[in-house]
Each structure stands twice: as structure tokens, then as C-alpha cells.
Nucleic acid binder design. Sequence first.
RNA 1: GGAGUGGUAGCGAAGCGGCCAAACGCAGCAGGCUGUAAACCUGCCGGCUUUACGCCUUCGGAGGUUCGAAUCCUCCCCGCUCCA
Length: 405
Amino acid sequence: MPSKASAAEQIALLEKGADRIEPRAELRAKVERSVASGEPLRVKVGFDPSAPDLHLGHTVVMRKMKHFQDFDHEVWFVIGDFTGMIGDPSGRSKTRPQLTEDQIRQNAETYKEQVFKILDPEKTVVAFNSEWLSGLGAEGLVRLASRYTVARMLERDDFHRRFRGEQPISIHEFLYPLAQAYDSVAMKADFELGGTDQLFNLLVGRHIMREYGLDPQVALTMPLLEGLNGIEKMSKSLGNAVGVTEPPEEMYGKLMSISDELTYRYYELLTDRTPAEIAALRAGVGDGTLHPKRVKQDLAVQIVSDFHSPRDAAAARDQFESVFARGTVPDEMPSFTASSPIRMLDLLTSSGLAGSRGEGRRLLSQGAVSLDGERVLRDIAVAAPADGAVLKVGKRRFLRVVPAP
RNA sequence: GGAGUGGUAGCGAAGCGGCCAAACGCAGCAGGCUGUAAACCUGCCGGCUUUACGCCUUCGGAGGUUCGAAUCCUCCCCGCUCCA
């Protein structure tokens, strides 16, 4: 059941926001052919099963997958379990521990759960690349490897940099782009999506498909989302990411911490606002008719709504406003049961708000700690009333301290 | 296999016998400022304590030299380059 949308409509949405489309003419040709024949296009996206915690950066590509689904094309969500079993390749120095089949299955489930917040489960094929890669065998692998050269492999930016920077590159890392390319061969992909950093791998896919006598896929990359600090790409290990499963308040708070400039970028990549709408927001802030904080609030509400619900988003906004703008205490906070009376340092370390006693002392002396609104500067013994006391550390960490019975 | 060169805190990178728990940058934490948790400014940023130029555990690993070692020596492990 092909989409009723015209080729022109499809092309407009599919090209929107893309970083690179290689080659653009083929995208159009494929779409036109599909519209004419009624045959859906097959779109591939690969994910590494070792890190199932998705963050907003991943959703940029997923939104693009969704666009394809909106036109009833066939989206394949390929989980790289084969590569995952060998261990991580592009990882800098440390080889990750091999994943067991069990872990992979588990991670895959986690993936699906997160991914289907954006994608339509009905229109998504979930596949594991071990399905075809395991059967390849040593011989098949050698044959595959013979289709590409070391020189071309070294064109990949990170290989190139590491080679020149005298950093180690293991041979098996070369097999990764090839294995990924073979995925495209096996499933006869029309498109492969990925972040900009995937461009090389996607193009290897094109090359290898041709080598295997197939119509090569079109590589479509999406820009990498900058992390919260606006400098590096969003990544969990850099600590500048917003996970899609984070609670609403956490998500909202993190989004409010981005700079004004980054706000527009997030609108562009994380919402369905059109370029014209985003330009209007920017213009409104420029001439003073729109408050930048308001623009950012709307963004945060929108995104939280996508992953939770509009109600959660509104609640998160209200809490944020009351806590940070008006300095009041949030309605809900984790509670911690402690003996009472208790010395502040013991309380801080046992509750985990301070990593060590030294850190606790620092927090105290810096005036970061308060109990029921009273600043506590020294390691004194405090008592929590039966209904609990609010311990605040820094601007945003709250804990309700309940005395042990 | 041979010859070089290098392995320092979460990361990057100084130090090259004492004043080194180790400069500096980034990240992180806190305070100030603000429309926000941005930017900017200030402080902190191994652990413990009676907060003290005190104690304990750190500079790839194991030994050794020395009153004293991240710094010197020996062996081992690992990275990189060139040669084979």
C-alpha cells in the first residue's frame, strides 16, 4: 500500500534537514520510481547493540526514518549484533568486552522500547545482521575484503587521523565498514541513513553493493546534534547528552541549560518546525517581541512531550520555574532515611550527595548545603523532624531526609 | 627480530632527584551574576583527619640506587615510527 503522496512531496520532506545526500539525483530517481511502481523503498539504519541508551542525538536520524515511514517506505532497523559479538572496533583504545547473545537480545529490546517512541512499530523491520554475516564464513569475509583497498579505507577521517597521529588501528577495525556494507548487500537497501560521521561507511556500502552487482544505495546523513554545551557532539560519555528515557524534569532542566543560540539548532533537528518557522522565532527574539527564555521553554516542553506526555512536560516546566526562577522547593524529590540526629558529613556521604567526606567538607564550606532553607556551613549534627527535612545541595539537588524510626 | 621514541590524575598535556598530590587547558562541582543550569567572574577539583605547609594511597608493572624518586638503574608489559 504505497503512499498517496506525490514524488515531489516526498522528496521535499525526505531532503529536509539532511546534511549530505549522495547522490541527490538518485534519491529523486528512486522516489519517482517508487511512486510510479507502487513499490516501497527499503531504508536501512544500523545501530550498535553495545550501547542501548539512546539520547536526543540519535533521534535526529530516527526522525528522518519516520519521514520515510510516513510515506509507507520500509524501514529496517538493523542491530549490529554480529559486530557487537566481535567487540567494538571504532572504540579508541579499549576493546569492549564481548557481548553475549543474551545481552544483545536484552539490549535490542531496550532499543525497540526507546525507538518506538518515534518510529511506528508496524512499519519497522527489526533485523540482526548476524542473520547474514554469520553465514558468510572466513571465505566470504576474505572475498568481501578483497573488494576494497587499504588506501581507500585510510580515507576515512578517523583512520586517517589515527594513522597520521601514530595511534593504533587494528586490522579488524577495517572489517567494520565492510561488514556494514555487506548488510546493505544482504538486504538490498535503497537508502542508508546515519549521522554525518557515518558518511564514509555509507559510501563503502555503495561501493560494495556495486561490486556485488546491485543497484547502490543512496547515502543520506543527518547532522550531528551538538551536546548541551553546544561544542562537541552529543554523547553520553561526554556527559552532554539528554537520554530519551530520562525523567521529564531531568530532560526539561537539561534542555533549559542550553545557550540561546543552540535553541534554534535543537528546533531544527529535534522538532518538526519548518525552517521558516524557526527563522521567525529567531527574528522575534531579535526584535524583542519574543523572549529567548520563552522560546527555549517551548522547545523543552515540545521535546519532553514527545518522549513523555504534554502533561509531564507542563509539570516539568512548572517545577523548573518554581525551583529555579522563584527558588522554591520542588513538590517531589527522592527521600532518604537517616538516623537522627546525624552529622552533616555523614548525611552527605551516606546519601551519595557527596562522593567523599572531603567533597562534603568543600560543599559545606562553599555554602552549597542547606537544610530546610537554612544554610549549613559546618559539620554539625542535625536532626530531621518526623515529617522530614529538605536537604538541598547546590542549586538542583534535593533530598527529603526522613528520620529512621 | 633490530633501532629509536613514549606510557603522568576523567581527558589532553607539563614536570625529569627534594619546595610534587604533581603546572596548565578541558570536563566536573560550588558561589556570584542573570530570563535559564548559557556566557562571564571567583573558588574547589586523590583519600582521611584535630583543615595542619599533618597522615595515607598515586605518575604502565616489579625490583633496586639514594637520607629522599614521577624524576636515576635493571627487568617486564604496552603504544608509535623506521628498518627487517
